[in-house]
């Protein structure tokens, strides 16, 4: 595979990989660093990409593993994840009417267990098929459905809690 081929395969995945990385690592900078790192890794393993049926699934699995590792080493070295991202200016771009609610959805998503967070991101944000998600997360469809159901219910319940609280 030459450089141009590599670019046409990998570049369109940029934003998806970034969003996934950001979902795990929370920080924008760290997510960007992670994507850069993933690109390097993908380039090094480009022979492997060709063998995989879906380069997308391969790249997403790689991103997931890399980011979870990063998170682990960060927690191990006792660094706190900074949850400051949602106060930055980029949020202004967000849908203004639903802003409070949207903000809340993001906050709730952050509190989900890793696997549920990933499933929710890949299904409800990126809209992948269950079979694809199962492959990406090296799991099976049943487990994915269960995790997804839990994640959706948690978001719903937390939203309702906050929603009712906001009204009363």
């Amino acid at each position: 595979m030459d450089r141009n081929e590599f670019i046409t395969i990998v570049m369109p995945l940029k934003d998806k990989l970034y969003r996934l990385a950001k979902r795990i690592l929370v920080s924008k900078d760290e997510a960007e660093d992670a994507v850069q790192e993933i690109f390097m890794k993908l380039w090094k393993g480009k022979q492997q990409i060709e063998n995989y049926k879906s380069p997308e699934a391969f790249a997403i699995t790689m991103t997931k593993n890399y980011c979870l590792d990063r998170l682990k080493s960060k927690q191990a070295s006792n660094l706190k994840i900074v949850h400051s991202n949602y106060q930055t200016s980029e949020n202004i771009e967000r849908n203004i009417e639903a802003n409070d609610g949207v903000e809340l959805v993001f906050q709730i998503m952050e509190t989900l267990p890793e696997q549920q967070k990933l499933v929710l991101q890949l299904r409800d944000v990126e809209q992948f098929e269950f079979s694809e998600i199962a492959k990406m997360l090296e799991s099976n469809e049943t487990a994915i459905r269960v995790a997804l159901s839990r994640a959706r219910k948690t978001v719903r319940d937390e939203m309702i809690k906050k929603y009712n609280y906001g009204i009363s």
Partner: peptide
Amino acid sequence: YTSMFAGFQVAKEEHS
């Protein structure tokens, strides 16, 4: 439920 779906929509528009 609106903000939940709106949230996913916004999440999909995030990019670097």
